[in-house]
Structures are given as structure tokens and as C-alpha cells.
Amino acid sequence: MHKSIHAAVRCQQRGIPNLVIEWLRDFGDEIHDHQGGTIFTFTRSTRRDLERAVGRQVIRRMNEWLNAYIVVSDEGVLVTAGKRYKRIKH
């Protein structure tokens, strides 16, 4: 996936590994933001799916980044990434 300059900077500043971005793309729940983008985030059920795929031990070690989210444009470009501290409303 192609990252915008803004997204690359945010991922570096917030310490979000590329592996977590791939997991969000593959397993994350999609929420349309009504501004031309899609938010990918982990929900309780998507975390369970991820745990089945990679194993419980990996999830325990990567728990710090499971509150991350990414925003992807309609063209498939990663726009930004961050960590959630509150519930995302849709």
C-alpha cells in the first residue's frame, strides 16, 4: 500500500509498525468516514480473527498497537494513522 508523506510521518511519530498497518488492512473493521475515505480499526470480533490467524502470544506482545487505526482514501492511499483513545462513532 502506498503511504502519503503525511501518513509516513504520523506512523513514525506514533510508532505504528508496518505489520500493524497490514493487519488493519487485512483484518480491521471498515468504517466509511463520509469524506471519501475509509477508517480501518480493530473491533472485538476482528481481534479474535487476528488472534486465530497469528496466535495468542503474538497478540499479547503487540497489544500496545491494537488500538491503532488507519485512514485510507478511495484511491487506496494511506492518508493517516493514529491510536484511538475513544470509541469511533459511525
Rank of each mutant, 00 (worst) to 15 (best):
T41Q: 13
I5W: 08
Q57A: 15
I5K: 12
G15T: 00
H2P: 11
R61S: 08
V9I: 15
Q13M: 11
F42D: 05
I39V: 14
I59Y: 03
K89N: 10
I31V: 15
Y69N: 02
R44F: 09
I16L: 14
L19A: 10
K3G: 00
G36F: 06
R25T: 14
R84F: 02
N18A: 09
Q12T: 09
V77M: 06
F42T: 08
L19W: 01
D33R: 04
I5S: 11
Q13W: 07
K83V: 07
V58K: 13
C11E: 09
R10W: 03
G37V: 00
K86E: 15
R56Y: 10
D26L: 15
K83Y: 11
E75Y: 04
F27G: 04
R87P: 01
K86L: 10
V79A: 04
S45E: 15
I5A: 11
V58D: 06
V79Q: 09
G55F: 07
I21L: 14
T46P: 02
M62E: 13
V72E: 12
R10V: 04
I21W: 01
T38N: 04
L24F: 01
R25Q: 14
H6M: 05
Q13N: 13
A68H: 03
V9T: 14
G55H: 08
I31G: 01
V72F: 02
Q13K: 13
T38K: 05
L78I: 13
H32T: 06
R87L: 11
T46V: 04
R52D: 11
I70C: 07
T46W: 03
D33Y: 08
R14F: 07
L50D: 06
S45Q: 14
S45W: 04
L66F: 07
A53M: 00
R84N: 13
L50T: 09
S4K: 09
A68E: 05
G15C: 02
Y69A: 01
I16K: 00
G36R: 05
W65P: 00
V77Y: 01
Q12N: 11
K86H: 13
I31A: 09
Y69L: 07
F27N: 01
T41M: 11
D29S: 12
W65H: 15
N63I: 09
F40C: 12
T46G: 03
D29R: 10
L78E: 07
A8V: 04
G15S: 04
R56I: 09
E64L: 13
G37R: 06
R60K: 14
T43S: 14
T80P: 05
E75S: 13
I59P: 00
H2Y: 07
G76P: 03
Y69S: 02
D29A: 12
